[in-house]
Design a binder for these strands. Sequence first.
DNA 1: CTTGACTCCGTACCATGGTACCGGAGTTAT
DNA 2: ATAACTCCGGTACCATGGTACGGAGTCAAG
Lengths: 127, 127
Amino acid sequence: MENHSIGSLARAAGIGVETVRFYQRKGLLDVPPRAGSIRRYGADHLDRLRFIRRAKEAGFTLGQIGELIALDRSRDRARILELASERVAALDAEIAQKIKARDRLADLSSECGSGRAGPCPIIEAFL
Amino acid sequence: MENHSIGSLARAAGIGVETVRFYQRKGLLDVPPRAGSIRRYGADHLDRLRFIRRAKEAGFTLGQIGELIALDRSRDRARILELASERVAALDAEIAQKIKARDRLADLSSECGSGRAGPCPIIEAFL
DNA sequence: CTTGACTCCGTACCATGGTACCGGAGTTAT
DNA sequence: ATAACTCCGGTACCATGGTACGGAGTCAAG
């Protein structure tokens, strides 16, 4: 459960070695001390990678994730809440926009599929 | 309504001059002949820019938009339909994912807001 | 004790969708 | 006519989120 090399950490997290290094460069994952010449990673690093994945799924950018990590350390709940509710509002907007686009496109598809001659209404309707 | 310079075309479309040029380089917008040394754009170009905007709103990438434009010219309704329904499916997936993320984040926010001590549950829950 | 897999670090490169800057020529308004 | 603006073409740069590569060192198994 402990004592991963970078490769085994990456495999455990389901990402690439280069991505692990990339997160380290971005300051999202700390670089552990090394045993000999090879760095050894533990459960905390794996947790951090899981956190990054989940936060990415919630649509936070890596920059914002860095901020969340810093805020977690500083226990600044108010600012975390602020970021979270901004993100909820942004997600609401994105969802509404996507639903609109989706419905429009689905309508047009069924129209285009119902075989009338002439140019496809999908393209026409976008004009 | 006609006879735009690149700057007035861009203003009319609500985008930047550089973006117009960029679309030209990408082959999304054709470069009109010039009257004298200045290129003159017409309603068709403005339509094309509007088409690009709408297709972008539907989540098509510029590459896919290029394909749509080509397909429109070749009247290949079947392939257009295929692209459109792929996009609808992708939008459905994105919408579902975002709703999940949104609800999760909203729940966590209200939990975090309801003042208990300790670390913010938003961060905790992402672990 | 060699071979092969893995690690280290730095740097370069990728796609996407633009945005900025340059020098020089042309255009428009006063 | 002269200043201010716009255009042209080309190239360089930006952020985002990675991905790839090269050379040197290290480690474990056969």
